[in-house]
Amino acid sequence: MSVSFFSGSTSFKQQWPFISERLDQIIDDGKFTNGPTVQELERKLENFTGAKHCIAVGNATDALMIMLRAAGVGIGDEVIVPCYSFFASASSIAHVGATPVFCDIDPSTYTIDVEQIEHQITQRTKAIMPVHLFTQMADMTVIRQIAERHNLLVLEDSAEAISMFHEGKHAGRLGNAGVISFFPTKTLGAIGDAGLILTDDDTIADQARLLRIHGQNEGVPYIHQRVGYNSRMDDIQAAILIVRLEFLQQEIARRAYLAALYNRKLANISQVHTPLIKKRGDETANAVYYVYLLETEQRDDLVAYLTQHGIGTEVYYPFPLHTQPCFSHLGYQEGDMPHAEQAARRAVGLPMYPDMTDEQVDEVCEQIHLFFAKGDE
């Protein structure tokens, strides 16, 4: 039995009648970009997240850049960011003219090591950008305390964190602003690129709306207050997301069920480490399994074996950001971030999506068992 790393075809086909009805309306109205369906999505996501403002944009990378610029981050500033994340977490900082200052990660959660943050603060530090990665949020209580002590912005890369909460607040609302990604593989996915900025700050929201449409005020074309971006969300993607939002909680529950299956079936393999959901204070993070991440010293051999047997995987992230050639001028060396570098050598994502069947999880786990059994022979 082959098992792809990701497939959303079954759930999408089930949702298609609802989506089709909305697409027909968009075609009839002729409003295809940043139109009424996008505005409806923004209102629904404001209700869902509790955010005062949700600003839909073309993708989450644009969302990060627009968020940074809207918050006033620019040339000469430094932004503290974990070095184990998707490239856009750092490239967005560079794109606005600021400098990413890298931190190592907590090896159990893959989020920024809060004990390192204050050591990285300088007179040029403008913001901390925690990344909520894979299943749970960074330690926002400590991060906010540090930011308050040093008068810093907190701008959350919450791209993967739809429906993650801390102390009753949705991810992206614990600091000054945050973002969400709707890339097709995400927990709430479109069928193309789409992203969102969320904030309770009126000024950041106003600037974000300005920046997403070439720096012009909405409804006042051809007068450009700033040099902005062409980052409007398509109404087609908004229609799909409105429908899929209605199914989000049951899909998150399915992901949790699949993760529990994985945990149980892989528990007795000593060579692997399954995800740890970390308790902070009196609160246990509400895990949302965007990715089911496994760690093993034999990662590359395991990936090759699973590929040979028709099972898809994804290596997260084989090259930490501080080792990327484009950031070599910053002077980081291999060995500077040992926890991130270990994860880069050991971590692999297994198939995890609501369309997965119990039998597919069985197949993945059986092949992992067979791989390690061969190694023990």
Rank of each mutant, 00 (worst) to 15 (best):
G219K: 09
V220Q: 11
V220E: 08
H224T: 15
Q225E: 13
R226E: 15
R226H: 09
V227L: 15
G228K: 10
G228R: 12
S231W: 05
M233V: 12
D234C: 13
I236F: 14
I236S: 09
A238N: 08
A239M: 01
I242P: 08
V243G: 02
L245G: 06
L245C: 02
F247R: 13
L248Y: 04
Q250F: 01
E251A: 09
E251P: 01
A253C: 03
A253F: 03
A253P: 03
R254V: 08
R254G: 08
R255A: 04
R255C: 07
L258V: 08
L258H: 05
A259I: 07
A259D: 09
Y262W: 02
R264A: 14
L266V: 07
L266K: 08
L266A: 00
A267R: 14
A267W: 11
Q271S: 12
V272S: 01
H273Y: 11
L276V: 13
I277A: 00
K278N: 04
K279W: 04
K279E: 11
G281W: 06
D282C: 13
D282R: 13
N286H: 02
V288H: 03
Y289I: 10
Y289E: 03
Y289Q: 07
Y290A: 14
V291D: 10
V291M: 09
Y292G: 05
Y292D: 05
L293P: 11
L294Y: 04
L294F: 00
E295M: 14
E297N: 11
E297G: 10
D301T: 14
V303E: 11
Y305G: 07
L306H: 03
Q308G: 09
H309A: 02
G310H: 11
G310C: 10
I311N: 00
I311M: 12
I311P: 00
G312D: 07
E314N: 15
E314Y: 15
V315A: 09
H322M: 10
H322P: 04
T323Q: 15
T323R: 15
S328P: 04
H329Y: 15
L330A: 04
L330V: 06
G331S: 00
Y332F: 06
Q333A: 12
Q333R: 03
Q333S: 08
E334Y: 05
G335F: 00
D336G: 01
M337E: 00
P338G: 05
P338E: 03
P338Q: 01
R346C: 15
A347G: 14
A347Q: 11
A347L: 12
G349D: 02
M352G: 00
D355Y: 12
T357H: 02
D358T: 15
E359C: 04
V361H: 02
